[in-house]
Design a protein around this nucleic acid. Structure first.
Length: 296
DNA sequence: GCCCAGGCGTCCC
DNA sequence: GGGACGCATGGG
């Protein structure tokens, strides 16, 4: 069911009629590193240089603090994939998996992580985030992304009508990171990834790689372009395509998904036959194995 | 202390 | 094309 927006106030948006939507799952399933539980309630964070706090008082209702109606329609609706019919998407996934999945693992995964939505994040930020993610753990990935933003992003002050205020930083541009230089990036405890972040920043800043053009390429060609960056292999490229370019067919295989494939699909799962929502299915499986079966 | 993390580049077969 | 290994750092 597509979201129905029933009430808007300045600086606050209420979205009702939701299904297949759970902010806790969306922001704690390893796709986004800039949102965290907020002391005032719910979850808050930064995207596209804007700060918002999200609350979900009931399963079918979302409150967005820090955005007005126009901004919701232009930014957050798309970011949160509230313009997608996840009921239909799940039905498509179940059908595609049926030949491979006698045990019904995908159905269990869709049950447990049923509120996940694939965010449509900024491609550049997503690229840097998943470069940082390699051989790294999520708390530390978050710390590094925050450090990059505080050091080289733009500083903003958010103030609501009722006294809520927040200082936040946008994610730095490619130009800003290229200007900073590799050594400065290394100084932020990025480790061996500093040269990778720098290479990405330099290529994008100098126009050697145009993310806008990549957005128009077929998925496999787009992946090949992204993999020209040092430190970007198939897995990182797939994550960037899925979480940053809205390519829901991209199917990242990391250690957890590898485990899922070996464990539940020993006879093989043809990941190229899973359709245009394969990446969303991948995210249900990732969440299921890591957060439900795994011990974190 | 130890193992491991949403991998990748490099070397070697 | 595939398997072993090193990599910076810090979370659990």
């Amino acid at each position: 069911m597509v979201a129905i927006t029933e009430n808007f106030e300045p600086g606050k948006v209420i979205v009702a009629g939701l299904s297949d939507f759970d902010i806790a799952q969306i922001f704690d399933c390893g796709q986004c590193f800039r949102f965290d539980p907020d002391p005032a309630g719910g979850i808050s964070g930064v995207a596209f240089g804007r700060w918002v706090r999200l609350e979900q008082p009931r399963p079918d209702t979302l409150i967005i603090y820090g955005a007005g109606r126009e901004e919701y329609e232009r930014v957050w609706k798309r970011y949160l994939s509230l313009d997608e019919d996840y009921g239909a998407i799940k039905a498509d996934i179940a059908e595609r998996f049926a030949p491979f999945d006698k045990a019904g693992i995908i159905n269990a995964a869709m049950e447990r992580g049923g509120g996940i939505r694939i965010l449509r994040q900024d491609p550049w930020e997503t690229l840097c985030s998943f470069i940082v993610s390699q051989n790294n753990n999520i708390p530390r990935i978050k710390k590094i992304i925050a450090a990059l933003s505080e050091e080289y992003g733009e500083k903003f002050e958010y103030k609501s009508g009722d006294g809520e205020s927040k200082t936040f930083y946008s994610f730095p541009t490619a130009e800003a990171l290229a200007r900073a230089g590799e050594e400065a990036l290394y100084a932020l405890r990025t480790g061996f990834r500093a040269k990778y972040i720098y290479d990405a920043a330099r290529k994008v800043a100098e126009g050697e790689l145009d993310l806008g053009s990549i957005a128009k390429l077929p998925t496999s060609e787009a992946a090949a372009e992204l993999m020209k960056i040092k430190g970007v292999g198939l897995k990182v490229a797939s994550c960037v395509l899925l979480f940053g370019f809205g390519r829901t067919e991209a199917f990242p295989v990391d250690v957890w998904v590898r485990r899922v494939l070996d464990k539940y699909y020993p006879d093989g799962l043809d990941t190229t036959a899973l359709g245009r929502y394969a990446g969303i299915a991948q995210q249900y499986l990732f969440y299921y194995e890591r957060y439900i079966n795994g011990n974190r």
